[in-house]
Write a protein that binds this DNA or RNA. Structure first.
Lengths: 220, 220
DNA sequence: CTAATTGTTTAGGCTCGCCTAATTATGGAT
DNA sequence: ATCCATAATTAGGCGAGCCTAAACAATTAG
């Protein structure tokens, strides 16, 4: 029903709305997809005619219920494939995004249900992002907060990353940080709003706000 | 480098050449892809400009070495995915073709090498067709012949099917025949060039030439 | 050898998805 | 309330891939 191009727009609109809490502007969509604003205008018109988006110029594009359903299914497929690639084909967590961007467009609900079952219904992908179930429900990550907001002397463990770019993930690898790693905030510094944390393997690790805002943790 | 559409043409040309031993005519390609001859002319021109095919009008389109390499890689991907779908996601052998047609266009040699490794380098897909290795080498099926050509009182086992259509595969399921099934030709009849075979579970099974030509077996 | 049939290409047109350049509309600052 | 920077749209065009209808070429049958 939807082409890959359409699906990419729908996903972009969804993630922009999620990130900003507002409708996605023409310009924002263009930036997200590395395309031009005029192309976005074109596509938004098409998606609107298909009943997948609403558009109030200068106030953003929002997904209709139907559009939202499509978006969550694409995200489900994306995260299922990422999980498969990491857990079964032994890719590293910073290597799977591009591949999943291709695989997410495979058109078969049944295939993805089977993949889900094959992996025993994983709840989170390799970056800690929740995998929507086949009805589109997403478990909510109650209690999860950026490391930057954690008070001194709290024991937490890493449950996700806000930034899944290869660069950031490789940085974490280099610091010996991965999902599940337990951390305690030892000290908090005014300067650069940085925190000093200790893990079992490394203590006195100083993290700038730039990092600690992207690291999602949960108290233990 | 190649679009899905181009890949489909290349694959079609390859399989027609394999089936007929000759270059693929414009008409044959059109039939294979359920498209029109004029569309084929268009695409053949493009593929020719890319150096993937040669074309002598009225004598058929043939793949260049480069085109052949692409074709075998697509077939490799197709058969790897079919194997994955059947062996790991528990699809039936008549259900996987369409899905593999989508998955075969995923652009990543590495992914398919890993998939190959994950499955322990399978040599044949669920229909008994050989899976090219990453250099494009295909194991040759020495000694494999259509059941129709097997002399009386020979013990054979099924190693492949020439026709992988769901209809034919379901027929085989209905007859209790699958890859590996051992058969003996009890009798051969003039009429319809049919053969009577026995398996461990069923004896006196009469097969028309239409079926026995499609069943590839190997003497034991 | 010619004619008829079949195969192939050409011409022109369509949609999708993208582009650039030019234009218009708007929200926000003054 | 007006003006401006920014956002958005329009207009026109392009390539890929497909189509129909018409023209044309070649194989093969007579």
């Amino acid at each position: 029903m939807s082409s890959s191009a359409e699906e990419n727009y729908i996903k972009a609109i969804f993630t922009i709305a999620e990130r900003t809490g507002k409708g996605a502007s023409t310009t924002a969509i263009a930036a997200q997809l590395s395309t031009k604003a005029s192309s976005v205008t074109d596509m938004v018109k098409r998606l609107n005619e298909k009943g997948l988006v609403d558009h109030r110029p200068y106030h953003g594009v929002t997904l209709t219920d139907q559009g939202t359903r499509i978006a969550t299914q694409i995200i489900r497929k994306h995260r299922l494939w990422e999980t498969f690639l990491v857990n079964h084909l032994h890719y590293k967590w910073d290597e799977v995004h591009e591949l999943a961007e291709q695989l997410e467009h495979i058109d078969s609900d049944d295939l993805h249900d089977r993949l889900d079952k094959f992996m025993d219904h994983p709840k989170f992908d390799p970056h800690g992002d929740p995998i929507p179930d086949k009805e589109g429900r997403i478990v909510d990550m109650a209690g999860a907060v950026p490391l930057a907001e954690v008070p001194k002397d709290t024991l937490v463990h890493i449950v996700g990353v806000k930034d899944s770019s290869p660069a950031f993930l490789k940085l974490l690898d280099g610091l010996g940080l991965k999902l599940g790693t337990q951390l305690t905030v030892n000290r908090r510094f005014e300067f650069g709003n940085s925190v000093e944390v200790s893990s079992r393997f490394r203590s006195g690790l100083l993290l700038q706000e730039e990092v600690s805002l992207q690291l999602i943790v949960k108290p233990l």
